[in-house]
């Protein structure tokens, strides 16, 4: 249960960091997303039942600080978490091979879904140009930053649920 008490304020702060500090690293139309890195990391180290609430709450928090319809990031994060759960076994938090490519693909999945939801809400979204102008810079920065976040989230998960930190996995 402690994981939920910690999760809520952590995700709240992460959403605010995304809207403030992360915008300092904006390149072209894209910026790194700490929220996406946290959700992907959590999905890689924790059980699906633990990762899904983080995906929903994190998505809603992110949407509250965005013009996107509330819940759209949650849908994208939930699908990403489910896909990660289906593809990968639970990773040890020292793993450095899987998280970077995973977050790269997740950035594109999230970006394309975000474009779709913006279009659904009536905003004009240039899909093709957006692929390289908005999604690519953010994806590259997420790729570069994921290992730090992954270690941090892995550490928190290990602290809260020590049995998942086994080196045998």
């Amino acid at each position: 249960m402690a994981i939920y008490y910690i999760g809520f304020p952590v995700l709240m702060i992460v959403a605010v960091i995304d809207a403030t500090f992360m915008q300092l690293f904006r390149l072209w139309g894209g910026a790194p997303s700490l929220m996406l890195m946290v959700i992907v990391s959590w999905a890689l180290v924790a059980d699906l039942e633990d990762a899904l609430p983080w995906a929903v709450i994190g998505g809603v928090m992110r949407d509250l600080l965005s013009i996107t319809p509330t819940g759209s990031s949650a849908v994208a994060f939930v699908l990403i978490v489910i896909a990660i759960d289906r593809i990968f076994p639970k990773l040890n938090w020292h793993n450095i091979a899987i998280p970077p490519p995973t977050v790269l693909v997740a950035s594109y999945v999230y970006g394309l879904m975000s474009f779709g939801f913006h279009r659904l809400a009536g905003w004009d979204v240039p899909f093709l140009n957006g692929l390289w102008y908005i999604i690519l810079p953010g994806a590259v920065m997420n790729f570069a930053g994921i290992l730090i976040v992954f270690r941090l989230i892995g550490g928190i998960n290990n602290f809260l649920r020590p049995q998942r930190g086994s080196m045998l996995r």
């Binding site: 039942e49 998505g59 509330t70 819940g71 759209s72 939930v78």
Partner: peptide, 22 residues
């Protein structure tokens, strides 16, 4: 299974929120 329930609930909540928000 609890996994199926968790997935179903998460998707249901998220999609409902999107529809209500729109």
């Amino acid at each position: 299974s609890p996994r199926t329930v968790a997935i179903g609930s998460a998707l249901f909540i998220s999609i409902t929120l999107v529809i209500l928000s729109l």
